[in-house]
């Protein structure tokens, strides 16, 4: 257990250093909240309608930005070799890496997402659901994204390959989470959408590490 905790704190610190942390996510959302009204026109009604969706897209893109470093550096500097020589299975180590990534990048983004959406004119009562969706969606993005990052290990322009592999897998959580937010804003039943999002995240957490570990072993050999 102490090994797992040691790895988690190291991974969170590393992810924080390579583009996580509260300031980076705040700056990211500040950029979205500033540019979106300029790009779509400032009518409050239109902005309010697309604000939750914009927060979602920003979350997915922010997750994508930090992914290509998740395994690449450890692969290049030999850390991945040493991680395999432990009684902690590589699958668990991969899951911990994604969890660290989520803690350092997605959790601060989840706190910033409702603020950005409200600043764009979303109704304040949407804030808790936006937060919950961002937290759950971030988990799915981290674990699904980890598969892409591990599969593109050792490839030239691995970042581009990661994006191509991962984007189709990002579609379901965006649809489920965005649907839940839309329904909630329109006073319709929203729990089904959120439950689907949670189910997708659970599946990613359960199955993702197996795929990641297999991809890492393949890249190392």
């Amino acid at each position: 257990m102490s090994r797992a905790m040691a790895l988690l704190s190291r991974e969170a610190a590393l992810a924080w250093g390579r583009g996580g942390g509260p300031m980076v996510s705040l700056a990211f959302y500040a950029g979205v909240a500033t540019l979106l009204p300029l790009a779509t026109g400032p009518e409050p009604a239109r902005l309010a309608a697309i604000a939750p969706g914009a927060a979602w897209v920003a979350l997915a893109l922010a997750a994508l930005l930090s992914l290509d470093r998740l395994f690449e550096r450890d692969y290049e500097d030999g850390a991945l070799d040493l991680l395999t020589l432990s009684s902690v299975p590589l699958e668990i180590a991969c899951a911990i890496k994604c969890l660290g990534q989520w803690l350092a990048t997605a959790a601060p983004l989840a706190f910033a997402a409702p603020v950005a959406a409200i600043a764009l004119g979303a109704k304040p009562h949407l804030a808790p659901l936006i937060f919950a969706c961002a937290l759950m969606g971030g988990l799915a993005f981290a674990f699904v994204g980890g598969i892409g990052a591990a599969l593109s290990l050792g490839a030239r322009r691995g970042g581009l390959l990661t994006a191509v592999i991962v984007l189709p897998l990002f579609v379901p959580p965006v649809i489920f989470g965005g649907g839940a937010l839309d329904s909630f804003a329109g006073g319709l039943p929203w729990k089904a959408g959120f439950a689907l999002l949670a189910a997708y995240a659970a599946a990613a957490v359960a199955l993702g590490p197996i795929a990641m570990a297999a991809a890492c072993r393949n890249a190392l050999s």
Binding site: A6, A79, L82
Partner: peptide, 29 residues
């Protein structure tokens, strides 16, 4: 029961020597 040590030591340049040694020592038990 195995230690592997080579040029690629897995130590991150931006972390302190103690952070890296403490982590890899703990990871090895």
């Amino acid at each position: 029961h195995i230690h592997l040590a080579g040029h690629q030591d897995g130590q991150k340049p931006a972390r302190t020597a103690w952070e890296e040694l403490a982590f890899w020592a703990r990871w090895s038990g």
